[in-house]
C-alpha cells in the first residue's frame, strides 16, 4: 500500500505479537483475589515513563482516586492519553508527573495550554475518536485500523496517522496505529474481587481500554459477590482476566460523579477553577492529595460526610444505572 500522507507526530506502537506474548504470560486466568489499596496498586502497576490511559472524564466516572495516588507517589515522565480528559491531565502536569500528552481534548483551564506554549509538555495531535479507535485496534490485536476522520486536516499532519490508498475501493483512507497503553485506569460502579467489572450508563471506551492495556487497575465504588456476576452476566462490562488490580474506592470518582450513585461536586470544581486561574494549583494539590495519606483521609478530612451525603442525595436519577 502506498503511503500518500504521513503524520509527523510521535506515537506509541507495539507489535501485536509482543502484545500477544504479554497477554499469554502476564494476564492471569486463575481466579485470584486482586483487591489492593490504591497505594499498593499504583506502587505495583504504574512505573515512571509508563503510557497511561483511562476511561471517561473527571466529571463522570473517572478514576480520580488512582490519578491522585499517582500524583501522591510522584510518578515521573508519564505519557498520558487525553482522549476525553478534563481536570486530571491538568493535575498530572501541574504535579510534574506527565511530560507528554496525546490530545484528544487536553483539559480544563489555561495551565496545560501554557505548558505546551512554553514547550514543557510535548503533545501529539489526535482526536477523541481516533484515540478510542487506537485502543480498539490495540485491544483487537491488529496493528492498525482505518478511519475516514483526520483526512485533509492539520490534525493529521501532527498525528502519527498515515493516509494510504484503500486497496479495495481505491480512495484515500487514514490508518491509525494500534495503541497498547502500559496502564489502563478504569473506575466502575461494581466489581468482584477477581476483577469482573460493571459500569452503567454510556462510556467512552471502558472495554477497549481494558482490552488494550498491559496493566489494568479497576477502582470500584462497590465490591460485589462473584455469584452476582454469574446471576446477571449481561451486565458485565469487563471480564476478570484483563484486570490486574481491584481497588475498593467509594467516591473514587470524586469530585466527578458516578451516575446513579452520586453527583459531581460543583462547588469543588469552582474551587479548582479559582485556584487554576490564579496559578495556585500547588495549593489544590497540597490540600487534596499531598497533605493526606489516602483518598479515604481526603474524603473524611477535606470533604466530609455531610458533603458526601449531599452528593448522594443529589443523584436522584437512578433509571438504568443498576
Amino acid at each position: 500500500m502506498d503511503v500518500l500522507v504521513q503524520g509527523v507526530g510521535d506515537f506509541r506502537f507495539t507489535e501485536p505479537d509482543a502484545i500477544r506474548a504479554w497477554m499469554r504470560e502476564r494476564k492471569r486466568r486463575e481466579f485470584v483475589d486482586k483487591t489492593l489499596t490504591a497505594a499498593e496498586a499504583v506502587r505495583r502497576f504504574v512505573a515512571d515513563r509508563d503510557y497511561v490511559s483511562f476511561d471517561f472524564s473527571s466529571f463522570t466516572r473517572g478514576p480520580l482516586v488512582l490519578i491522585r495516588e499517582i500524583i501522591r507517589q510522584q510518578r515521573r515522565n508519564l505519557w498520558y492519553c487525553a482522549k476525553f480528559t478534563l481536570m486530571e491531565s491538568t493535575l498530572l502536569v501541574a504535579a510534574g508527573c506527565c511530560s507528554r500528552i496525546d490530545v484528544g481534548f487536553m483539559g480544563l483551564g489555561e495551565t496545560l495550554n501554557r505548558e505546551v506554549e512554553e514547550g514543557r509538555v510535548k503533545v501529539t495531535e489526535w482526536t477523541n475518536g481516533t484515540l478510542t479507535l487506537r485502543h480498539l485496534a490495540g485491544g483487537m490485536g491488529v496493528p492498525f485500523l482505518p478511519t475516514r476522520a483526520l483526512l485533509g486536516s492539520d490534525t493529521l499532519t501532527y498525528s502519527g496517522a498515515k493516509v494510504v490508498r484503500d486497496p479495495f475501493g481505491g480512495k484515500p483512507v487514514a490508518l491509525v496505529p494500534a495503541l497498547n497503553p502500559d496502564v489502563g485506569l478504569i473506575h466502575v460502579h461494581q466489581a468482584d474481587i477477581y476483577g469482573n467489572a460493571r459500569c452503567f450508563g454510556p462510556g467512552v471506551s471502558p472495554l477497549e481500554t481494558a482490552m488494550a492495556s498491559r496493566k489494568v487497575i479497576i477502582s470500584a465504588d462497590e465490591i460485589i459477590d462473584h455469584d452476582d456476576i454469574r446471576k446477571d452476566p449481561g451486565k458485565t462490562t469487563i471480564p476478570y482476566y484483563m484486570v490486574d488490580a481491584v481497588v475498593y474506592a467509594p467516591f473514587g470518582a470524586y469530585p466527578g460523579g458516578v451516575p446513579g450513585l452520586y453527583e459531581m461536586d460543583f462547588e469543588h470544581f469552582a474551587e479548582y477553577h479559582t485556584l487554576e486561574r490564579q496559578g495556585q494549583l500547588k495549593t489544590y494539590l497540597d490540600k487534596y492529595i499531598d497533605s493526606v495519606a489516602s483518598d479515604q483521609e481526603m474524603l473524611e478530612q477535606r470533604v466530609g460526610l455531610a458533603r458526601l451525603n449531599e452528593l448522594r442525595r443529589r443523584a436522584t436519577i437512578r433509571e438504568g444505572y443498576r
Binding site: 490530545v103 481534548f105 487536553m106 506554549e117 482526536t127 477523541n128 475516514r148 476522520a149 483526520l150 490534525t155
Partner: peptide
C-alpha cells in the same frame, strides 16, 4: 488547536479537536 505560524511554539494553545474532527468529517 493553536494560533501562530509555528506549530512547535504556538502563540496560543487551545485544548484541541476533542471529537470535533470526527463530527465535521462525518
Amino acid at each position: 488547536t493553536m494560533l501562530g505560524a509555528d506549530y512547535a511554539r504556538p502563540k496560543k494553545r487551545f485544548p484541541g479537536s476533542g471529537g470535533a474532527n470526527e463530527v465535521a468529517s462525518y
